[in-house]
Amino acid sequence: MSSDVLVSVRGLEVHFPVRGEGIRKKGAGVLRAVDGVDLDILRGETLGLVGESGCGKSTLGNAVLRLIPSTGGSVHFAGTDVTSVGGKGLRELRRRAGMVFQDPFASLDPRRTVAQTVSEPLEVHGLRSGRRERAARVGELLELVGLDPAVAGRYPHEFSGGQRQRVGIARALAGEPDFLVCDEAIASLDVSVQAQVLNLLRRLQKQLGLTLLFISHDLSAVRHISDRIAVMYLGRIVEIGPASAVGSDPQMPYTQALLSAVPLPHPALERERKRIVLRGDVPSPSAVPSGCRFRTRCPYVFEPCDDVDPALQPAGAAGQQAACHLHGVVGTPVERTPEGVTAEP
């Protein structure tokens, strides 16, 4: 493992048991929320994780921080095995890796003041002894996220959504973490407030040298904030690479469709654009298709897709990787035309 890698995920699986419907079927199903993810998050980078609802992106984020147990594979954080660590090691992990949640209304305790919420990690990790030191640190943290330290005595209901999200970020930063997972951290905010929080996260990332895993369904926001982008589909990462490459020259047909479906605020451009409209819905993660998991909706589907599950492999000139047979089973690209695709290079 290179020293530049802060978080290393190998073959991670999070499977949930599913109860059968009715009384006849005995619970034999398995829901594969995360189904074999390999991922390296580099120190100091922002990795954007995009995908549609149900693709497993939040589950992956939770499993990386061990907020839910994984059922297979491994996660290493700065060399420690997250999936097996306990006691002091786990507490240290909790300090060094934080989480910013989606809903700033649900993730703050309504009966605790901002000061109580933000100082709890300080107490738990013994970072500041003495009430006065903690209060001073809370003030610093609030200032860091752009809030007036004078608001420390207020309760969450006295704040707007954007301000609450700032409080959530201050809490996540209290332990002086190296790594933050932001799970749909801007999804419930209005456009103008979203921009404020995105700018704040970018500034903090630079200022504090944080490593961010930014999980979102919003490709524009992910493209804006990330150094690299990983695209997830049905529990698997199907494309990963530099943000500019994934955002402008996607190599996996799913990413292409996803990107083409993102509405752009330019009327002339929108009229010109060809939109790739995918067939049908995402298959259920409890019945993942054989072979390539995108083949049931892929406009380029051809022979090997039915049986062979493609692994991530180099694709395109800009250094991204895609899990797609179009880039050849052994790395030779295949001529691409929708519908009738031939296997000859």
């Binding site: 524009s220 493209r223 330019h266």
Partner: peptide, 8 residues
């Protein structure tokens, strides 16, 4: 305020 894919 809108992150815009078309203006990279």
């Amino acid at each position: 305020a809108l992150p815009d894919l078309a203006r990279p």
